[in-house]
Amino acid sequence: MSPRRPRLSGLRSNVWLPPLVAFGLLVLVWQLVATHEPPQTVATVPATLAALGDRPGLFWHDTLVTLQEMAVGLGASFVVAFTLAVVMVHVRVVERAIMPLAVVLNVTPVIAYAQGLVILFGFGIAPRYVVTGIIVFFPFLVNSLIGLRSVDREALDVLRTLDASRWEVLWRLRLPSSLPFLFAAGRICVPLAITGAVVAEFTTTGASAGLGSLIVVASGYGQVAVIYAAILVLAVLGLVLTLGVTLLERRLLSWHPSSS
C-alpha cells in the first residue's frame, strides 16, 4: 500500500502552527513600528487593508497586468530555454557556443540593462516581457540541461538496443527524467519572474499599469498605504504561484522520491 500523501487541510497543528505564529509576530512588529513612525513613512496594518478595500478593482487590474507579464515572460523563456537545452543535449557545439552567453546574461544585473531594453523595445509592455523572460532564462536553461542529461544510463541502453529514435528517447525517457529539475527551476523562477516584472514596471512607468507601476505612482503622491498594499498583493501573488507549482509537482511527480 502506498502511504496517503497528507492534504493541506489534513496537516497536523505542529506543521501549520509555527509559521502561523511567525507570521502573526511579523504583522505585530509591523503594526508596532507603524504606530511609532509618522504615517507618511510606514502604513499601519489597518491602513494598508483599507487601501486594498477602497479600490479592489484597481489592485485586481494591476495584479492581472503583472501576472500577464510574468506568464508571458516565464512561458516564452521556458519554451526557448528548454528547446535550446534539447538542442544542446544532442549537439555539443551549440552548448559550447551558447552557454558562455547565457552566463554573461545571468551575471549582468538585469536592472542595469532594463533601461536599455525599454529604449530598444519602446515604453509599452514588450520590454516587461523581455526583462521578465531574461531574469528566469538561466535557471530554466541550466535545470533543463541537467534534467535532460540526468537519465538512467542503463535505461538509455535498453532504449538504444531497441533502436528507439531520438524523439522517442526524448519523449519517453529524457523529458520525464527532467521533470524534477524543471519543477525545481519553477520554484526558483516564479519569485524571480515577479522581481523581473516589477523591475521592468519601475523602468517603464509610461505604461502605467501593474503592481510595480502602482508603487512608483503611489510613491509620487505620497500614498504610503497604497505602496504597502501593493507589496502585500505581490507577496500573496508569489506565495499562491509557488504553492501552485508545489501542488502541481506533487501531482505529477508522485513517483519521485522527493515527494514522499
Binding site: D152, E154, A155, V158, L159, L162, R172
Partner: peptide, 26 residues
C-alpha cells in the same frame, strides 16, 4: 532484448507500463 545490471525501470511507469515500453518504441 537487453537486461542490464540494474533493473533500469522507468520510475514514473507502472510495472505493466514498463514491460510494454519495448512495444511502444520503434
Amino acid at each position: 532484448g537487453f537486461v542490464p545490471q540494474s533493473p533500469a525501470l522507468l520510475p514514473w511507469r507502472t510495472v505493466l507500463e514498463n514491460v510494454r515500453l519495448p512495444l511502444q518504441v520503434n
